[in-house]
Design a binder for these strands. Structure first.
Lengths: 116, 116
DNA sequence: GCCGTTTAATACGGGTCCGTAACGAGTTCC
DNA sequence: GGAACTCGTTACGGACCCGTATTAAACGGC
C-alpha cells in the first residue's frame, strides 16, 4: 500500500503548496516547466528534447524554450551527445537538485501539518 | 496526526500530478490562478479582491485579471456587495466546484498509486 | 557522394500575464 | 457638501509562452 489521502485533504495540501509557491515569489516556473524539471530529476537519464516533448504531449520548441529559461536559472544544463551529435542530453545541476529537494521538503511539511 | 509523506514520495507525487495536469491539456491555469481558485473554494467566504491580493502577496490587478480569466471559464463569479457597493464578493460556481473536486480526486489517485 | 530522415534550434505572429500608474465609483468624516 | 480615503478596474509598455513553419547540422542507407 501507499499514501492514504482523502480528496478533501488532497485539496487542502494542493492549496497550501500552491499558496506557499506563489507567496515566496521565488521560482516563477510555469506548470510545464515544473513538469519538465521534475521529470529530469526523478526519472532515470538520459533525457532528450524529443522524449520530453512526447511525454508531456507538447511540441519540441516548448521544451527547447523551457530549457533555455531554466538554464538561465541554472536549474538544468545541456550537452551535445558525442555519439550522435544531433542529440542534446539534458543534465542536472546542483542548483536544480536543491530546488527539487526544497519542493519535496515543502510538500512533506505541508502534508505533516494537515488536520487528521 | 496527519499525512505521512517522505520527501522522495512527495516529489514523486508532485511529478505525477503536474504531468497529469499538463498532459490532459485541459485547465491551463497559471500557478497563481490555481492558488486563487483553491483559496476561494477551500477557505470560508466571503472573499474580496483585496483579501486575495494580500494573502497571495500580489497586486490587485493580478486578482482582477485572474477572476476575468476564470470567470470566462465559469470557474468563479462576482457580485457587487449591496451593503458597500465598492466591494466585490467573489462567488463559487458549480463548474468551479467540480473542477476543484476533480483535482482532489486526481491527487488522491496519484497518492494511492505511489510505491510503498 | 547523395538523398531522405531525424534532431534541436530559430523566426514569426498571436496571445496571456505582469507591475505601475491612473481612473471612476462609493464611502466616511467633518 | 466637500475632502480624504478605499475599492475594484482599466490603460500601458514590457516580458514571457505558445504552435506552426522553417532552418541547419548530423546521421544512415544506398
Amino acid at each position: 500500500m501507499a499514501v492514504v489521502l482523502r480528496p478533501s485533504l488532497a485539496m487542502k495540501l494542493m492549496h497550501e503548496v500552491s499558496l506557499a509557491l506563489v507567496q515566496d515569489g521565488e521560482a516563477d516556473l510555469s506548470s510545464r516547466q515544473l513538469a519538465i524539471l521534475l521529470t529530469i530529476y526523478l526519472e532515470p537519464p538520459p533525457h532528450h528534447v524529443r522524449d520530453l516533448a512526447r511525454k508531456l504531449g507538447v511540441t519540441k520548441p516548448v521544451i527547447t524554450r523551457a530549457l533555455d529559461s531554466m538554464g538561465k536559472l541554472d536549474l538544468v544544463s545541456r550537452r551535445r551527445d558525442e555519439n550522435d551529435r544531433r542529440d542534446v542530453v539534458i543534465q542536472r545541476t546542483v542548483a536544480g537538485a536543491l530546488a527539487v529537494e526544497r519542493l519535496g521538503d515543502l510538500v512533506t511539511a505541508k502534508a505533516a501539518a494537515l488536520p487528521p
